[in-house]
């Protein structure tokens, strides 16, 4: 009423002004290029493709099912499916992407591709220093740039990676068990070997699709 509010405000700003010189906890600015803060695990920038093992082409988890391409709201993913097939981590033959491109100038980091992927193949990256001089080609990431090892995924998202690894180990164990029963059955009924082999492929495919609702409910 008589200006005491103004005086109070002035005192507050003065406290801030002088306090920022004496107390370090007031001055929370991080001078970015020189100083960095540890990256947050929950951070997400743009998606990348996970591969297992050493050879990225062989270990790529993506099977080019094109679900992410269809689900992507801004339509920033482009996938070209391969004609031939190669075995995936459980040894089942799957297609693989010939071309997998993400235009990160269009991507809105919504993470929907990650949610819908049944194969744990696409994950969100935390790398954010992506500036480039070429705003068309430089921001269109191709398969080579997108593929990153599982070790990297473990490093940036330890919790998420542990879950995924556990699930995949489980699947692998199931597949192995199934293969074992299959071989056992093959040993028992050597005569029907060809028939059993045909039956082997069908339940394995069923396993893979089963993991999808699990994953969605977890997220």
């Amino acid at each position: 009423m008589f200006g005491e509010g103004i005086l109070k405000g002035l005192a507050e700003t003065a406290r801030n002004f002088f306090g920022s010189f004496v107390s370090a906890e007031r001055l929370t600015t991080v001078e970015y290029p020189e100083q960095r803060i540890a990256p947050f695990e929950a951070a997400r920038v743009f998606p990348f493709l996970v591969y297992d093992g050493e050879d990225w082409l062989a270990g790529l988890r993506c099977v080019a099912c094109q679900i992410c391409e269809k689900e992507c709201p801004p339509q920033c993913i482009f996938i070209e499916k391969s004609k031939d097939k190669k075995p995936d981590f459980v040894g089942k033959p799957q297609s693989y992407p010939m071309r997998f491109e993400i235009d990160i100038s269009v991507c809105m980091s919504c993470q929907i591709c990650v949610e819908v992927c049944p194969f744990e193949a696409i994950k969100m990256d935390t790398a954010f220093e992506l500036s480039t001089g070429d705003r068309f080609g430089g921001l269109l990431l191709n398969l080579t740039q997108l593929a990153k090892p599982n070790a990297y995924y473990r490093q940036i998202h330890p919790t998420g990676a542990a879950e995924v690894d556990a699930r995949m180990a489980e699947e692998m164990a199931k597949a192995e068990a199934k293969a074992k029963t299959a071989t056992d059955a093959a040993a028992k009924a050597a005569a029907d070997a060809a028939a059993t082999k045909a039956a082997d492929a069908t339940p394995a495919a069923g396993d893979a699709s089963q993991s999808r609702p699990d994953e969605e409910s977890r997220r």
Binding site: N16, F17, G19, S20, F21, L27, T29, E31
Partner: peptide, 12 residues
């Protein structure tokens, strides 16, 4: 000065 008032560093 404004930076310091807002607990920032200001241009440096």
């Amino acid at each position: 000065g404004l930076g310091r008032i807002q607990n920032r560093i200001g241009p440096n």
